[in-house]
Design a binder for these strands. Structure first.
Lengths: 224, 224, 224, 224
DNA sequence: CATGAATGAGACTTCATTCAT
DNA sequence: AATGAATGAAGTCTCATTCAT
């Protein structure tokens, strides 16, 4: 899903590459995108030089992690679509289960210039579009089956996903877990078809509006 | 509000301190909480030594910025409570207008150990509690006046605030602005009293649960 | 001569700067232009950070050393012109004595892109032109006094200086010393006015031809 | 001449060895003796491991390049001696034409410990002596035929060769080419027998004095 | 023999913080 | 109280060389 284009690697090199990405994913998740490459290498059980043989610099590593996250997220989303009885259930499952997707979003918002970084690699941008396409199909099907209110678009849903993917400041505790679930429940309730809905401002937002380059993010981790 | 306890400063020292906090606020907002102190000092028009005369280390500076943010946010929230006709309207206004509050929340989620950091300084922790108290009053009043559903607590509302305070990855464009407003509208709709509500998981979350030390964040910027 | 434009430095900073340049001069002379900056700093009795406070990178340090060399070389040449009875004697003394000039040339030919590097700093380029001007006056005076053959130009003389400034591969031994002196003697003999001279190829080379950018050096230490 | 002692190599190995030496010669000439071995290998179309199968380390590669240079230079010098009418003409041709000789001298003066390095390999040292012997014969013959002044020795001539082998800092331009030719003409004029000659300092320098270990260079590229 | 992945020492540079002026 | 120079600990990245495939 993002790796077919890599030149064939020798088995040991491939294994090292995978271990480095896995270690980086953990370090980025726990210590942010500035986590020391040396520590990442150590966690992966390789020397620093090996990390740099596979990834030219920190950015390349971040891109690789992001692509990997998106790949897994897409796989999870596909499974949800395939296995759930209704599009609505698929949507709920995607929202609830995608830890990988969540990590992607965290990385996305924590690293300055992240969009620019991702654009540098075909894989990364493709993965993003792929995810959006998938979400778009689910949204339209949910509206067709009458479970999702029809005055929201895929873009609206994506924005909500992005918000919910953010870590709560208190996330690890039991309260945080509960808070997160309650928040999701409230959001899902507001998306559900039926009942009286307020008129939302503007028009529904669809994928073409969020895929557009015009929506490039600002400059900085807190704004980006 | 958070600064009464500071020793009297000479006028010029006071001015320097203020300029440093202002510069830091800008740098933290645009370049994250790791922004170089030297740059912050330069922006403030002082030498690095001066910055460190006022703030023992980076953390102290972050605390000062947070306190400053909270002070402003509290002032804005007070104005909302005073000037709006209903508690609901005050809530909406707080959510929509408080740029300072938004920045506070961003800082809160972007910096590792932020809770621990804030706790180190009486001022900072007090400001946070002050803000929560204020929100609590508004929430209870809104429930009393019948505009806010009663199965949510102040903690739930705070979590939503925190979520909405996050920048959308697309925030700068017109679409992003619209997306943000639509998202807020959906959230507010879900908080509004009336209609049929799904049963939310667990119990309502109230201030004591989010002020509790048990909710301390884990170790890392993305999780914290 | 190359340092008037520096902002006033505090006395201690000035002293450190000078010690760093002196240490760098020694290291470059003995270990080439890739000598470790850390060692240079250690020799100067400062920490690496101090070296980098004064010189943004290795290139800047090399430029500073080159400027310093040229400054000293110019001073020596000026002394020769002032103190020697004839322009010819001044020429001989300049050729024989200018250790600093010799070091400049070594650096010049040992470091890739050296000309480009020097051009980056106004001081460096100015010093070079200054030196050429000085040499030009001596050459013309020697020709006017009838001691230097008139079919050579300042450019020719400069080229010979440059050649002689190169280290002989055997330079440190007694033989090398002698070889160097005999070589100089032969060269000076060929420059001396009087007797029958072969027709030299082309025309005399004057300063405008060697100051011209068109004569930029090739890419590399052995060709440059 | 320098390679008879090598063990027989398979045809492909032999071809690889030759390509590596050729690539190294180019890289050393353009980027100095510290040129990355990996780049040299790439230019030669082999993997780094192959380079190290043929040459134990960087020094061995440098020696191989030097031997190769000397071999070619000797062949050219032999041709000059054979084909030119007088020893003087042979001397002039050797000086003017031997690009390989020039490169040998450059490498010799650019690399630290070069003499020590060459001495480590029988081939390299033999090639150097061979070249000196050849030059010695030409010098003596030229003096015998009355075209070379008799107060200079082979060592003096070799030193001049070494000097002229250095690149002029301006070598690439038309002016540089001319300057080089004029410089050679002046030097040759000073070597020519006839006319009044100044007394040169010391005694003529002969091969035994420059082959002597006592002339070993100091420690560093700029002095060596 | 060739390959090219892995190593790991070490270079350069940055920056939070201290301290002499 | 302010200044800004100095420090030195990290961190990133390179590359000569080794070694498993």
């Amino acid at each position: 899903m993002g790796d077919e284009q890599l030149p064939r690697l020798r088995a040991d090199a491939r294994r090292n590459r995978d271990r480095i990405v896995a270690a980086a994913k953990t370090w980025f998740a726990t210590h942010g995108p500035e986590a020391p490459t040396e520590e990442i290498a150590r966690s992966a059980g390789v020397a620093p030089g090996t990390l740099y043989r596979h990834f030219a610099d920190r950015e390349a590593l971040i891109r690789a992690v992001a692509v990997d996250n998106f790949d897994h997220a897409i796989a999870e989303a596909n499974a949800a679509v395939t296995e759930e009885a209704s599009a609505w259930d698929a949507l709920v499952r995607i929202l609830r289960q995608s830890q990988e997707l969540r990590l992607s979003f965290r990385l996305l918002t924590a690293y300055p210039h992240m969009h620019a970084v991702l654009k540098k690699e075909r894989n990364a941008d493709q993965a993003r579009r792929h995810m959006v396409d998938l979400l778009d199909r689910v949204v339209r099907r949910a509206q067709a089956e009458g479970t999702l209110r029809t005055d929201v678009g895929t873009g609206d849903v994506a924005v909500m996903f992005a918000l919910l993917a953010h870590p709560l400041a208190v996330e690890q505790s039991a309260t945080a877990q509960l808070a997160s679930e309650r928040c999701m429940a409230l959001l899902l309730e507001s998306l559900r078809a039926g009942g009286d809905h307020d008129r939302l401002p503007g028009q529904a937002i669809w994928p073409d509006q969020i895929t557009d380059d015009a929506t490039a993010p600002p400059d900085g981790p807190l704004d980006g």
